[in-house]
Design a protein around this nucleic acid. Structure first.
Length: 422
DNA sequence: GATACGTGGGG
DNA sequence: TCCCCAAGTAT
């Protein structure tokens, strides 16, 4: 332990006692001191969701998950497709698959209880260096060094570490291990993350409000925004592809299929699409469609992924016969349960908005190339048709069986879908 | 070690 | 508009 280590954790914990954020998965410092402990299941679930994802984005998903699956056994008993559908919109979908695998491992191999050490936790699917340490510290009081992006920023500034990430990780971890107090390792980790999220922010840190400013080498030098130093990022290429939205004239149902279990949007549903490595010249059209129909171009969707930008040409057709390909019919009312990624929700929304007979003004020459998918997607969509309802379709029978006869239930109401994620 | 892997919000 | 980035992991 270095000479400065102890004052840092003391000052930080004192700050945390006053300024800790209240979060649905968190036990506040007072309650924690009073002996209350966080539920390892909730800690785990939140940590998985929070990987590369903002607190604001996670909150509603976390609430839905714990309402639906209050404990790890319930989650383990769920169908993976149902978990995927609930995860839809949160991104990084391998997390959802790993979540299920982890829940099953905890239930099957650990008697329904999460193992209590970082080393054991790390053997579970979806739990790596950060998450294992975080769960061990927060839920089980192990003084494991927790290092996430916030803490990297705080520590590189505190010690003015100029080594670029990710090379600096080991040094950062060493520093964190030195600072982590045996008494309150979980609060310390959460305090560091809160500090990084609210005070020691990337662009304009509020050093005047920071409890560690006196100990901070970068603040003393006045160059705090130089840290952390990161390797240069590479330019993101553009890929193109096409998506084909087939609508059943009778009830407005859309033909969906499931993407392969691994790779981009793995395991999620989609309107049948070409692959995306496809030529950047936009050489997509009716000829590339998954099955013959009167395909009409309705615009394009732009979507930014982490490592490439995608431009998807969207085609629409009204058909009546069930295609002779793998897939299933999804009714407008049931879109939320289909496990559609955000990209595919945009695709479907665009097709809906420009589909003739859908009740919305499909005219206006602007639909041909919707350069503003964001605005497009935010449009309130309404179909004036009455819909019949299939059962929720995102399930095994649906994707393999294809032409499974729909269970018909008359549901005479208008559908009005708003682009709001859920 | 480098790359694949989503999405939405903020400056 | 564009770029950055957010409680990372798996391969």
């Amino acid at each position: 332990m270095t000479a400065t280590a102890e004052p840092i954790s003391d000052a930080l914990l004192a700050w945390y006692d006053r300024h800790a954020r209240e979060l649905p998965w968190r036990i506040g410092p007072s309650a924690r001191k009073a002996g209350e402990r966080p539920d390892p299941y909730r800690v785990w679930l939140s940590e998985i969701m929070l990987q590369q994802t903002t607190v604001a984005a996670v909150k509603p998903f976390f609430e839905r998950f714990v309402n639906r699956w209050p404990g790890v056994e319930a989650l383990a008993a769920a169908d993976e497709s149902e978990i995927m559908a609930q995860w839809a919109g949160l991104g990084y979908y391998s997390r959802a698959r790993n979540l299920h695998a982890c829940a099953r491992a905890v239930t099957g191999d650990h008697g329904g209880r999460f193992p209590g050490t970082a080393a054991e936790l790390k053997t579970l699917s979806g739990i790596g260096d950060y998450t294992s340490a975080a769960i061990a510290a927060i839920a089980f009081d192990e003084a494991a060094p927790v290092v996430d992006g916030n803490i990297e920023r705080v520590v590189t500034r505190l010690f003015r570490i100029a080594t670029p990430l990710p090379k600096a990780k080991s040094e950062i971890r060493t520093r964190v291990a030195e600072m982590t107090p045996a008494g309150r390792p979980g609060d310390f980790a959460q305090a560091m993350m809160d500090l990084g999220a609210t005070i020691c922010t990337p662009r304009s840190p509020s050093c005047l409000l920071c409890p560690l400013t006196n100990a901070c080498e970068a603040a003393s030098a006045g160059d705090q925004t130089r840290y952390p130093v990161k390797a240069a990022k590479k330019p993101v290429p553009t890929r193109r592809g096409a998506a084909y939205v087939a609508r059943r004239s009778r009830d407005g149902a859309i033909w969906l299929r499931r993407r392969p279990a691994s790779g981009m949007l793995g395991g999620m549903s989609e309107a049948p699409s070409t692959d995306w490595s496809a030529r950047s010249d936009g050489g997509t059209g009716a000829a590339c469609a998954p099955f013959p129909a009167a395909w009409r171009p309705v615009g394009e969707i732009e979507h930014g992924f982490t490592h490439f930008r995608l431009i998807l040409d969207v085609f629409h057709a009204k058909i009546e016969e069930t295609p002779a390909t793998d897939g299933w019919w999804a009714l407008p009312d049931a879109m939320d349960e289909q496990g559609l990624s955000t990209l595919m929700r945009k695709v479907v929304a665009l097709a809906e908005a420009s589909g003739e007979g859908g009740g919305t003004a499909a005219k206006a020459g602007g639909t041909r190339h919707a350069k503003r998918p964001g605005r497009e997607a935010r449009a309130v969509l309404a179909t004036t048709e009455d819909g019949t309802s299939d059962e929720p379709v995102f399930e095994d029978a649906g994707r393999s069986g294809t032409t499974r006869p729909a269970r018909l239930e008359r549901r005479t109401r208008r559908t009005s879908a708003r682009w709001s994620g859920r």
